[in-house]
Design a protein around this nucleic acid. Structure first.
Length: 503
RNA sequence: GCGGGCGUAGCUCAAUGGUAGAGCAUCGGCCUUCCAAGCCGACUAUGUGGGUUCGAUUCCCAUCGCCCGCUCCA
């Protein structure tokens, strides 16, 4: 059995070798957290998105699509809570999950005597805008602690937060010692400027999630599409987060693509739709080939929930580098619509003319990472087995066992050798197929080598024109996974593929 | 962000303070009637920028990138 990282190394190597995924700007040394999809990768990724769109939008009556701009009015991100509280260097408490601005955190230490007579030093910390305020807060703390500590021998000196002292300093909220993290600039949004002037009035952001584009268009969609609750708005698009630490190949990238649904419903029905979507989304992955024993649903603990969510579940996949999130399904309540109503002054409510009720809908959000799905499908597909060589001896074979619906190339067409009109017939078959499927033609080198190349690309079927074709108009169709070959009449090829590719 | 490791051809890996080598892959040719065959030939590399040195791929510094651990993921 491979060690996990061996598997990732092999996958990364294959993805580069065959043209699935390249490092962004590679000739300039790359760019951390950014990746390019090559000729095979772009087909795979597009298949993932098209299947999602078909399953979530066009095959349903209760869903419509949207494509909002990436750069939006900066007020959107104030309303959503993405700017404001998160713009400054922040310190977290690992115990109570409190979060504090580093420039508002003050420390002091005092030496004293314990009741047993030994010396004692006690740290204080406080959150305050000004030193004087911090001092007052600490005096209050001192009175409390004075019950345990008898006598103080020196005045304390207030200092601003200093990283070297953070190990001894207590959390200003829960008083736990050494639980504070180092300060981090918490705003992960990419900042840019709209227009020629780069002043503060022109600051804009690249969206860190696609969801807000849907919320701010809620009324537009509602007014133009004659929709009734419950209904959903779906969007696929790029989002950007200036991650501190991109890791694990394409898993955590700074530029990435999301597939999101915001499903609007009556507040009383939110729980049942939440249950519906967590199952629907889990099954979607299973149906495209992810093994259910490598997938799991993990409910968020209360203290783990984001500020906007009432409940949230992660759909996680067991990647070689660890179990990690593919998608989150959250009950966002009416948080977003309420906030946008408040910040924009526009009415965001829905009027039900059956019940004569006016209310803000609740929102269930299945939010999936396209790149993460693609990576999961790639990890799942990577397989090593043995296949015989031309002498019948077993040789190691690498294949990508991608679901036929996901495979970048659906079928490859080969003449067995470059002789006796085989190329001509193979070309004709290729011409006939390529309008309908992504089909690939190859005549170079030994046929065994061509088969193995397609195995690494994940191509489910290879059609070979051989000597018998000339006599009875049949070809062989080879199955990627079983290596079995069916002999099929030329005029049955399309039917055969339709049946086996499932579309 | 912190600590550690690493960076040589498309891939996997050698070697060296003084000419950088192999296997596989790729391309061309010959041959080939079903699973990485053979023969001939060809292309291709010391991440980037500085420094030390007569000379640096090798030593030093910086930077970029990758991997591992911690941290983090609103």
């Amino acid at each position: 059995m491979d060690k996990p990282n061996d598997l990732m190394d092999k996958l990364v190597s294959l993805c580069k070798r065959r043209g699935f995924i390249f490092q962004s700007s590679e000739i300039y040394g790359g760019l951390n957290g950014c990746w390019d999809y090559g000729p095979l990768g772009v087909e795979l990724k597009r298949n993932v998105k098209n299947l999602w769109w078909r399953d979530m939008v066009t095959s349903r009556d209760d869903m419509v699509g949207l494509d909002a701009s990436i750069i939006m009015n900066p007020k959107v991100w104030e309303a959503s809570g993405h700017v404001g509280g998160f713009a400054d260097p922040m310190i977290d408490c690992k115990k109570c999950k409190g979060r504090f601005r580093a420039d508002q955190l003050y420390y002091a230490v005092r030496e004293g005597q314990s009741r047993q007579g030994g010396s004692a030093s006690v740290w204080f910390s406080a959150i305050a805008d000004k030193v004087e305020d911090a001092s007052a807060v600490m005096e209050l703390q001192l009175k409390k602690k004075g019950r345990q500590i008898r006598e103080w021998t020196n005045d304390f000196e207030l200092v601003r937060y200093d990283q070297e002292q953070s190990e001894q300093a207590p959390c200003p909220a829960c008083d736990e010692k050494g639980s504070l993290t180092v300060p981090r600039a918490f705003n992960l949004m990419f900042k840019t400027h709209c227009g020629a002037m780069e002043d503060s009035s022109s600051v804009t952001y690249l969206r860190p999630e696609t969801a807000q584009g849907i919320f701010v268009n809620f009324k537009n969609v509602l007014d133009t599409q004659r929709l009734k609750l419950p209904f959903g708005i779906a969007q696929i698009g790029k989002a950007f987060r200036n991650e501190i630490n991109p890791r694990n190949y394409t898993f955590r990238s700074r530029e990435f693509e999301m597939m999101e649904v915001e499903y609007f419903c009556h507040p009383s029905q939110a729980d049942q739709w939440y249950q519906y979507w967590r199952k629907a989304r889990f099954d979607w992955y299973v149906n495209l080939g992810l093994r259910s024993d490598r997938l799991r649903l993990r409910d968020h603990e209360k203290d783990e929930l984001a500020h906007y969510a009432k409940s949230c579940v992660d759909i996680e996949y067991a990647f070689p580098f660890g179990v990690s999130e593919l998608e989150g399904v959250a009950n966002r309540t009416d948080f977003d619509l309420k906030r946008h109503q408040e910040y924009s002054g526009r009415d965001m409510s829905y009027y039900d003319d059956q019940t004569k009720e006016r209310f803000l809908p609740y929102v269930i959000e299945p939010s999936a990472g396209v790149d993460r799905s693609v990576l999961a499908f790639l990890c799942e597909a990577y397989t090593e087995d043995e296949a015989p060589d031309d002498k019948g001896l077993p040789q190691k074979r690498v294949l990508m066992r991608l679901h036929p619906k996901l495979a970048p190339i659906k079928v490859a067409v080969f003449p067995l050798v470059k002789k006796d009109r085989m190329q001509e017939i193979a070309h004709k078959i290729h011409e006939q197929l390529k309008g309908r499927w992504n089909a690939f033609y190859d005549e170079k080198g030994a046929v065994g080598r061509r088969y193995r190349r397609q195995d690494e690309a994940g191509t489910p079927f290879c059609i070979t024109v051989d000597g018998q074709t000339l006599e009875d108009q049949t070809v062989t169709i080879r199955d990627r996974d079983s290596l079995a070959q069916d002999r099929v009449s030329c005029d049955r090829i399309v039917d055969y593929l339709s049946e086996h590719l499932g579309n």
